[in-house]
């Protein structure tokens, strides 16, 4: 039985008396709503945090007015503004594709949440190919972006979408290879088993495995995942200073909000993968800290990774297109291949 279903049966024993199909449907819907709620709240928090981090890194203080304490309600106000705005579709746009694109981008981001292991017991779907699933689903977002850029019938959007396609497709490779280095050792693709294989203290985490090989793999994964989710310094698809807004130039209101939500959900997903695969998931760094529940560790580690993403964003300028491709094909890819080879040799010898 799925760990999630067991978890719910323990939590709510009366579900056992229900017919199985009904119980499963209810559990599925509740889990999906939980995930959606988490994404929405996370995005609200992360956007506020991003504005605060960026402000303080530039010696400003950022939003201070809405909600009282340090403008905590600013993003809520912004969301309400976006929701009540007019939904504009350009006259010459391909209406169906235009309207579908944000939904696809957001769905791809949300689908990644299906296999994130929050604790040993709470994982929406414990697939035995969890990592493979999450990689394939997250690359689905590129279709949405390409669709949005094409359907907008705008040169900036199309440029952004084309860049996004080339970038995301290229960076899939180092992402997959860097994760493969770990999977080779763990011998499983299930997110849950990947974490369970790292139990122990901080030195048993995969980052410190085969030191320094997996640490380098971790850095490669992190850099490539930044490009995967179109974050600065790899935000060429948006490139507001050159492409107006990239693929979402023509989007406004609700649909723009969904692109944004998708971007922030993706940030969390890639950070959560890094946490699961390299940083020991829900496990505490030391045995004596295990009284703190797993989800707090998991979210805490993922939030730290999200913070580092923001930190990098406000440190580095945007790369040029050729530098982007150079970094991917001539640096990250060869290095990840080398790491796979070296880990293989280490295991054999």
């Amino acid at each position: 039985m799925e760990p999630l279903v067991q978890f719910f049966y323990i939590l709510l024993p009366f579900l056992r008396d229900w017919p199985e199909w009904l119980a499963l449907t209810v559990i599925g819907i509740v889990a999906a709503l939980l995930m959606f709620g988490f994404v929405a709240i996370f995005a609200l928090f992360a956007i506020w945090l991003e504005r605060k981090v960026s402000a303080h890194m530039q010696d400003r203080i950022g939003p201070m007015e809405v909600g009282g304490w340090h403008g905590w309600a600013q993003t809520i106000a912004d969301t309400i503004k976006l929701l009540v705005k007019e939904d504009i579709v350009p006259e010459n746009a391909d209406r169906i594709l235009f309207k579908l694109a944000p939904a696809i981008v957001f769905t791809a981001a949300l689908a990644g949440f299906a296999v994130l292991p929050w604790t040993q017991d709470f994982i929406p779907a414990d697939l035995n190919v969890g990592l493979l699933y999450i990689l394939s689903v997250s690359s689905f977002a590129v279709i949405g972006i390409l669709m949005g850029g094409w359907a907008s019938n705008n040169k900036w959007s199309l440029y952004g979408a084309m860049r996004s396609a080339s970038q995301m497709v290229s960076y899939e490779i180092p992402v997959a290879l860097a994760l493969l280095a770990v999977v080779m050792n763990a011998g499983t693709l299930s997110m849950r088993h990947l974490v369970m294989a790292q139990s122990g203290n901080i030195l048993d985490w995969n980052v410190f495995n085969f030191f320094p090989l997996t640490a380098v793999a971790f850095i490669i994964y992190f850099v490539a995942s930044l490009a995967e989710v179109n974050r600065t310094p790899f935000d060429l698809p948006e490139g507001e200073s050159e492409l107006v807004g990239g693929f979402h130039t023509e989007y406004s209101g609700m649909r723009f909000a969904f692109f944004f939500l998708g971007e922030y959900a993706n940030m969390y997903v890639v950070s959560a993968i890094a946490t699961t695969v390299f940083l020991g998931g829900w496990l505490p760094p030391f045995e004596f800290l295990s009284f703190i529940p797993g989800p707090i560790w998991f979210v805490g580690k993922a939030m730290t990774m999200v913070f580092i993403q923001m930190w990098l964003r406000w440190t580095l300028p945007r790369l040029r297109v050729d530098q982007l491709m150079y970094t991917c094909w001539k640096v990250l890819t060869p290095f990840s291949f080398a790491i796979i080879l070296l880990i293989g040799l280490w295991k054999v010898i």
């Binding site: 981090v53 402000a55 303080h56 890194m57 530039q58 010696d59 400003r60 203080i61 201070m64 930190w311 990098l312 406000w314 440190t315 580095l316």
Partner: peptide, 20 residues
């Protein structure tokens, strides 16, 4: 990149120069 990150980290804790 590490040097740059150090600079931004330091600025994260410097007093804001703006006035509300």
């Amino acid at each position: 990149i590490l040097v740059g990150m150090g600079v931004t980290w330091r600025h994260l804790f410097t007093r804001a120069v703006t006035v509300q």
